[in-house]
Simulated scan of single mutants.
Amino acid sequence: MYMTLIPFIPGIIVTFTLGTYSDHYGRRLSLLLPTIGALLASLGFLAVTYFSWPIYVILILVTLSTCFGGFTALFGASFAYVADISSSKQKNMRMALLDMILGVMGGIGVLSSGYLLSAVGFTWLFLITSLINFANMVYIIFFLEESIQVSRDEQNQVLGCDKFREILSGIVILYTSSSFSKRVRISMLLIAFSAIILEYGVEGLFTLYELNTPLCWNEILIGYGSAAGLVTFLTSFLGVTLFSRYLQDHYIVLIGILSFAGGMIMANFATTTLLMFLVRLVCIFAAMPLPVLRSMMSKLVLPKDQGVLFACVACLESLSGTISSIIFNNVYAATVEGFAGFSFLLAACLCIIPVCILCFLLWWKPQEEDYTGLITNEGSH
């Protein structure tokens, strides 16, 4: 809990600063700094395990890493970079591809970390992590091309007070420079995005639910269940790629939400191993909403505002994820004896919020703006 809460505020500040900075001076620095922070943290963890330093040193290392932006800034910059190099038609697919990579590789890391820990121990595990972070840093410095064209004078310019205020005011500029209908759409999509992250927090309870009666799964079944969950990211990517050819973005998000809600309702009544595996089948498109919502928001924003937008999205994702974990863990603890599946039912009910927002946006179509053509129209002015 301390590791989550202590670095939260500095992480938000640095993420917004780097996001707005990247809109003016390029994305590479906003990708490089969090990578350097991750390298320093992993080297610090290596030192803690090797020299048996006190456990509170870990809190210092996590805070230090967050002062470089942390994973929140890294994810925001990564999605902004993808938005820069993608056309309007490519954004859905590429956002879904990046989301799939994050989900699959993160899941593989979770599944393999226990085996690696038992095989090589903490010291070698943190050494491997440090080498990966170092490789990422080298790639960003020497091989990654900048997605924003910045003049040499701007690159060498020293940031004064005026420039610093300009960077910090990026989120304000994002709203004040937009029309009313555009502000409404962005705000409602951000609320829908946060609500979906909030309800997705229930997935952290699957292992607890599967270990409890009446399922009583062993470690082998838990592993199979986790692997089945990873397949959801692959099928969702394929779903986004296919549906983007025939459906509006709103409908793709609605399909994903209904897939997730159906799976949660089914999990509420899952009392056998077969039914619990079928829950993963029903959730086959559950990972589609987030990348498509990112793409929808990206299409609403001019290229010069992509960094601050995805910094805002990344911060909301971090905040909603933290709140979601607190809520669902406490709800599950309070209801596990009498109604163990109540948390899944609650998550399904929360789906009503983004569904209502998307239905409203489908109905409300200002004549002067169409989000799919907004970039072209504003760019021509």
Rank of each mutant, 00 (worst) to 15 (best):
R183S: 00
R183L: 00
V184L: 06
V184Y: 11
R185T: 10
R185M: 12
S187A: 09
S187R: 01
L190Y: 00
L190I: 04
A192G: 07
A195S: 01
I197T: 05
I197R: 06
L198R: 00
Y200L: 14
G201C: 00
E203I: 12
G204P: 05
L205P: 02
L205A: 01
L205S: 04
L208N: 07
Y209D: 02
L211G: 13
N212I: 14
N212M: 13
T213K: 15
P214E: 00
C216W: 14
C216T: 13
C216N: 12
C216P: 13
W217F: 07
E219G: 11
L221C: 15
G229S: 02
L230A: 01
T232V: 13
T235A: 01
L238N: 12
L238V: 10
G239H: 04
V240T: 03
T241R: 14
S244L: 01
R245C: 08
L247Y: 11
L247E: 00
Q248I: 13
D249Q: 08
D249M: 08
I252N: 09
I252R: 09
I252V: 11
I255K: 05
I255R: 03
G256M: 02
I257F: 04
L258Q: 11
S259D: 01
G263P: 05
G263C: 06
G263Q: 06
M264Q: 08
M264S: 04
M264Y: 05
A270L: 00
T272M: 09
L274K: 15
L275S: 14
L275Y: 15
F277Y: 04
V279W: 04
R280G: 15
R280Q: 12
L281T: 07
V282M: 05
C283I: 14
F285A: 10
F285E: 15
F285P: 03
F285R: 12
A286Q: 15
A286V: 09
A287E: 10
M288F: 13
M288L: 07
L293T: 07
R294H: 07
R294N: 05
